[in-house]
Simulated scan of single mutants.
Amino acid sequence: MTIMRRHGGPVRRPSALITAVLALLALLCSAFLVLPANADPLPFDDCPAHTLCLYSGAAGTGERRDFTDRRNAEAYDAAWDDRTLSARNNTRYWACLYVDAGYGGPVRTVEPGGSGDYATGDPRFVRTLSAHKTVPTRALCFTGYERCPDNRVCTFAKPHGRGAMTVHLPRTAGDDHGSSYGPEAAPRSVFNRTRHDACFYPRPTFDGTWTDPKDRKTYGAYVVLRGDHTTVPAPFAATFRSHELVDGTAECQ
């Protein structure tokens, strides 16, 4: 260090190292000053807490629609149907996104706190999503039986309680306490949430039989026990035209 004398007293001059440190600090300060005041938000950063956010663009861009964990939608209105290209799940549940209304068709799942992008990749999910629900476990994304009200028989257009649902109200008078319906309600799965066993028939008149083409055996009523749900196997699937409620399976026609 160089010492200079002035008026008889020594004066110390800052070293080159201190000068370099001061110059570096000045450079860093100037760098912070030129940063943009409003940086672009991170993808999905605008999605509120406790909300499932659906976006019309990739990576959380475009128009956004918000659903709380209590607002499941079996289908979207025409303005939003088939528009979702990305999603952010800020709920504490699993989010299930479906191609078809009524929780039908292929499904994508999004874990709690996770996100999904459907703008590219599997073409089955590009601008095809039409319904969603939030559930406690991922396994429940692949069924839809929970839609069936208590004390009703519900039939579904697709296996595992998915697809369009028909709710059958048990009659309070008459011997059969059942329902007769056309082929438009022919189910591929059933939930019997009544306190009776349900006997299903291939005719609207509460009778008829099935013949299995494999073993040529003939079967009478297809039974779904009280409180049970099932995917209907061949040769019974999509053939039911009526059912009745009974106190025991021996009462089936």
Score class of each variant (00 low, 15 high):
Leu97Asp: 02
Arg88Leu: 05
Thr137Phe: 08
Leu140Phe: 05
Gly114Tyr: 06
Pro112Val: 00
His168Val: 02
Arg138Phe: 01
Arg171Ile: 00
Asp122Asn: 13
Asp82Asn: 15
Thr155Gln: 10
Asn89Phe: 04
Pro170Val: 01
Val153Leu: 15
Pro170Ile: 01
Gly121Arg: 06
Arg83Asn: 11
Trp80Asn: 11
Val110Cys: 05
Cys148Asn: 03
Tyr181Trp: 15
Gly116Arg: 02
Arg188Gln: 14
Arg127Gly: 11
Tyr181Asp: 10
Ala87Val: 14
Ala131Met: 03
Thr120Ser: 15
Gly174Val: 01
Pro112Trp: 04
Pro159Met: 08
Asn89Lys: 09
Leu85Lys: 10
Tyr118Lys: 01
Gly102Leu: 05
Arg188Ser: 13
Gly104Trp: 01
Glu74Pro: 13
Asp175Met: 11
Cys154Thr: 01
Tyr98Met: 04
Thr128Met: 12
Ala75Phe: 07
Leu85Asn: 12
Val107Gln: 10
Lys158Leu: 14
Arg71Val: 09
Val135Thr: 07
Arg88Trp: 09
Ala95Arg: 03
Asp122Cys: 04
Asp77Leu: 12
Gly113Gln: 12
Thr84His: 07
Arg152Thr: 03
Pro187His: 07
Ala78Pro: 07
Ala164Gln: 12
Cys96Lys: 02
Val135Arg: 11
Arg127Tyr: 05
Phe156Val: 00
Asp175Val: 11
Arg71Glu: 15
Asp117Pro: 09
Gly105Arg: 01
Thr120Ala: 15
Ala78Thr: 10
Thr166Pro: 02
Arg193Gly: 15
Thr91Asp: 11
Gly114His: 02
Arg147Thr: 08
His160Pro: 03
His132Trp: 10
Gly104Ser: 06
Ser179Pro: 04
Arg188Val: 01
Tyr98His: 07
Asp117Gly: 06
Gly113Ser: 08
His177Asn: 15
Ser180Leu: 01
Gly121Gln: 03
Thr109Gly: 04
Lys133His: 05
Thr128Arg: 15
Glu74Cys: 04
Cys141Tyr: 02
Val167Ser: 12
Val110Thr: 00
Arg193Asp: 15
Ala157Asp: 12
Ala79Tyr: 08
Asn72Trp: 06
Ala157Trp: 06
Cys141Glu: 07
Phe191Arg: 14
Ser86Asp: 10
Pro106Val: 01
Ala78Tyr: 10
Pro149Asp: 10
Phe191Lys: 13
Asp175His: 11
Asp81Thr: 05
Ala73Ile: 00
Met165Gln: 12
Thr172Met: 12
Thr134Arg: 14
Asn90Met: 09
Thr120Met: 13
Gly113Pro: 09
Tyr103Ser: 11
Arg92Ser: 14
Pro183Ala: 15
Glu184Thr: 09
Ala73Gln: 11
Ala101Met: 07
Leu97Thr: 00
Gly116Ile: 00
Leu85Gly: 03
Arg71Ser: 14
Gly144Cys: 07
Lys158Asp: 15
Pro159Tyr: 10
Phe142Leu: 10
Thr109Cys: 04
Asp81Phe: 04
Val107Thr: 09
Tyr181Ser: 12
Arg171Asn: 13
Phe191Glu: 11
Arg162Cys: 00
Ala78Ser: 14
Thr172Gln: 13
Pro112Ala: 06
Arg188Gly: 02
His132Asn: 12
Arg127Val: 01
Ser86Trp: 07
Thr134Asp: 07
Thr155Cys: 06
Phe125Leu: 05
Ala87Gly: 12
Arg88Val: 00
Thr120Pro: 06
Thr155Pro: 05
Arg188Lys: 09
Val99Phe: 08
Ser86Tyr: 08
Gly116Trp: 03
Tyr93Thr: 03
